[in-house]
Design a protein around this nucleic acid. Structure first.
Lengths: 226, 226
DNA sequence: CGATAAATCTACTCGTGGTAAATTAATACC
DNA sequence: GGTATTAATTTACCACGAGTAGATTTATCG
């Protein structure tokens, strides 16, 4: 309601002079409200988009910036934490999608479609978390998603585990496959999250075809529906 | 005088009082030095890494910030221009690599290996250009690279053009394939540019296997060397 | 009751992108 | 040839976001 330029204070809050808060007998729940801070960050990012500042996030949480810093650390730590929560949710969603076994290509199709749909569900959060140049550890964390998704997928292919056959022996192969997979998914998701025109089914179909048959399948098999 | 931390003035330069410069009769070569500014930006990014500021870039070019802005526009425009130059160079390099025709899988292998090697050659510049969340038009520009690379690749597969068979009919398919391809390449490149340990041949081999056979090839064909 | 510790907010610094105002030289006009 | 106007450049500033130091108030312990 108010906020002409920058949000400074949460709507109906008393001005809260500085100093130790009255009433609190000891440090009760110092760790506990980390989740509340992350919740507030998620809420604001959903509402306002991926461009929100730490000041506004703190305001949304009803605290000030130093509290936010004490609770979750610096900006990188915040993004890291939000990415962890988001990726965990996406992973659970994907797992649920794959509960009932299916043929391998159908598994892949569900993975791709699920990834896109789940990213679109948390669009702003997904953009916030994956923006910023995928620096250092962020990328590595997204690999948890890729790796577990790939493992899940491979487990669907064969009981013996084709994934372990390739990923288990050679660490480089595992990493390359994970990065390649997540890169393809992520870039297609980035594009699709901007284009509201294309419907998810077609995109899923095309990407699944590419990931399934690879480029060797480009000669005879068109990725479009027959 | 100036700051100890950030370079403010190029080493041996005269202080240059403000005002219109003496000697220049009219605006000669206003457009011409845009390339010189971009050269300076490239030089400094190569030297100092992808974290350089616009101030330091202007200093490297021997001009001041407003001149830089007049010459190339804002930061996004600078990145755009540098990305255009880099991708053009990479595309030329890839084209040279594919001049002598080969079997399709070998073509793909050269594409992947060439992409990685060329990115590593301009490592800092590649990171500078692809950092920043791949927002909006940057991503679209990298598609020129992906699209032309894919076209080149497809032309190698069949003379009739498998690329046209899929890309020509359905625009969505073309876009999805391009984004997926460039995403896989870029993410693997990002990882590999950090890991100095892995040699390019192995990474190329694994990624080529993934892109060629797709995930359906994971059951029987291991991506590692037989 | 007084001193110390804890917890919080205010107010600042610092760096960076971006721009307006000041400054100087060239050019046009009489 | 002298003066006003215009072009080109630098300086100095603004806005804004991340991160932190210090002021401020309350609880707790002697």
């Amino acid at each position: 309601m108010q906020r002409a330029k920058t949000v400074k204070r949460k709507h109906h809050q008393t001005p809260r002079r500085p100093g130790r808060p009255a009433g609190r007998t000891s440090n009760d729940g110092v760790i506990a409200d980390r989740e509340a801070l992350l919740d507030a960050a998620e809420r604001l990012i959903r509402k306002r988009g991926p461009q929100v500042s730490l000041d506004s996030i703190a305001a949304e949480a009803g605290v000030t910036k130093p509290i936010l810093y004490r609770g979750v650390g610096d900006r990188d730590a915040l993004v890291e934490a939000l990415a962890g929560r988001l990726f965990m949710r996406m992973l659970e969603g994907l797992t649920r999608l794959l509960e009932r076994a299916a043929v391998p290509r159908e598994i892949l199709r569900r993975l791709v479609g699920g990834y896109l749909s789940l990213a679109a569900e948390d669009r702003n959060l997904y953009l916030y978390v994956t923006a910023g140049g995928t620096s250092d550890d962020r990328l590595r964390q997204s690999l948890v998603l890729a790796d577990r998704a790939a493992r899940q997928f491979a487990d669907g292919i064969t009981a013996s585990g084709a994934y372990a056959a390739t990923h288990g022996t050679d660490g480089t192969a595992a990493t390359v496959w994970s990065y390649g997979l997540i890169g393809a998914l992520h870039y297609v998701a980035l594009w699709w999250l901007r284009e509201t025109t294309a419907e998810v089914e077609g995109v899923t179909e095309h990407l699944t075809a590419l990931l399934w048959s690879g480029l060797s399948g480009a000669q005879n098999a068109s990725p479009s529906e027959p």
